[in-house]
Simulated scan of single mutants.
Amino acid sequence: MERGAPVDGFRLAYDRLGSGDPVVLLHGWPGDHTDYRRVLPLLSDGCEVVVPDLRGFGASDRHPADPEQQYDARAQARGVAGLIEELGLDRPVLAGYDIGSRIAQAVARDHPGLVRALVVAPPLPGIGDRILQPRAQREFWYQSFHQLALAEELLDGDPVALRAYLRHFWNHWSGPSFTLDEAALEHLVTVYGPPGAFSASIAWYRAGAGAVAASLGEVPPGAGDRIAVPATVLWPEHDPLFPRSWSDRLSGFFADVSVESVAGAGHFIPVEAPSRFAAAIRRVLERPGWAYGRN
């Protein structure tokens, strides 16, 4: 992987392949840039694709820092925006799921001139206090757990414990026909297993950027302050975290948004439904006016 220039003292590692229309792909938790291993072959013909490890993940820098200053969505967005500018990407399509979705939205909100369009999966705004429903809280327990020092004591630097922990999420959040292969799981254990790596990955939650904190703190913007970058939302059928009914308020947060249901898929759309994910990106690139929107 290559490494970008530092932003806030953090350098992002990234893969870059193909040529053509620019696309940036942002991974989720618990994952890394390899979340897009099945999407890349579907885009590399005709697209220049950049896939970073986010700040605190994988081969990118992780530093002890105030989570609220350096690991929340806006801080992560600064890093992604810096990489887009450094690489000279001309208004890429920015795509992501899980925390990558939140970060993509933050880039579109804070740096709208850098991005042509979004292709994202949950989480999305509009959930509000529905996240406190008993069913939801049974799923989001891990976000409270990640606030505790106990999480580090039990998991950080312990590959055996981490293997069981990571397997739980990939099995429980995925659709009924998906099983994470052992090689992919072992890769994630090598990424999250070194001392300090797991702790850095949960700095996102300690920054108050998780779905529970974000949903309870959200305030619908005025019409002129909605995210103006066009957004395509891919909503999976079997995501236990984010039921399809929670897509009902998106128009209050986006000026231009469309929602597509992805049958059979769970939370990990780029891994479970790579063809649908890539096809949505290609449809955005093929929209009339794309060539005119580029600088």
Rank of each mutant, 00 (worst) to 15 (best):
R16E: 12
V284R: 14
G266H: 14
V212A: 00
G252I: 01
Q143P: 09
D45Y: 05
V115M: 14
L43K: 05
L25R: 03
A280C: 11
G224W: 10
S144E: 08
V51P: 03
N295D: 15
I281D: 13
S174K: 07
A183D: 14
S201K: 05
A211C: 08
D53S: 11
G175K: 05
I269L: 15
S44T: 04
E153M: 09
S245D: 14
G126C: 05
L124M: 09
E86T: 10
L234F: 03
S199C: 12
P67F: 02
F178K: 03
A265S: 08
V119W: 12
L25P: 05
G289K: 11
Y14Q: 10
D225H: 13
V229P: 11
H111F: 15
F198K: 01
R74T: 13
L118M: 01
A117W: 12
Q76C: 04
L185D: 03
D90I: 00
A81F: 02
P274L: 03
W173K: 06
E139G: 11
V93Y: 08
S101G: 12
A203V: 03
L162F: 02
V233H: 11
R91G: 10
T179I: 05
A209F: 02
G293K: 10
P112F: 10
A200F: 10
S258T: 14
A278Y: 09
D98K: 00
A106Y: 10
R163W: 00
A65V: 01
G224I: 07
S215R: 06
Q137M: 15
G9S: 14
V160K: 08
A273H: 06
V7Y: 10
P125D: 08
W170Q: 02
L124Y: 02
F57S: 13
E218G: 07
S177K: 02
R226M: 06
A183W: 06
S247T: 15
D156M: 00
P67I: 03
L188F: 03
D61M: 07
D21C: 04
G252R: 04
D248I: 08
F242W: 13
D156Y: 02
A197E: 04
S215T: 04
A278M: 12
L12S: 13
R78Y: 00
D45H: 11
A59D: 14
S215F: 03
G96P: 15
S19G: 11
R130F: 03
I99P: 07
H168E: 09
A151S: 05
S199K: 15
V212L: 08
V191Q: 09
H172N: 09
A278L: 08
A121N: 02
A106I: 11
Y142M: 10
L118E: 04
G96D: 13
P195A: 12
S251W: 00
A280P: 06
R102K: 14
W204A: 01
P274R: 06
A77W: 02
T179Q: 14
L166C: 02
R138A: 15
R249A: 15
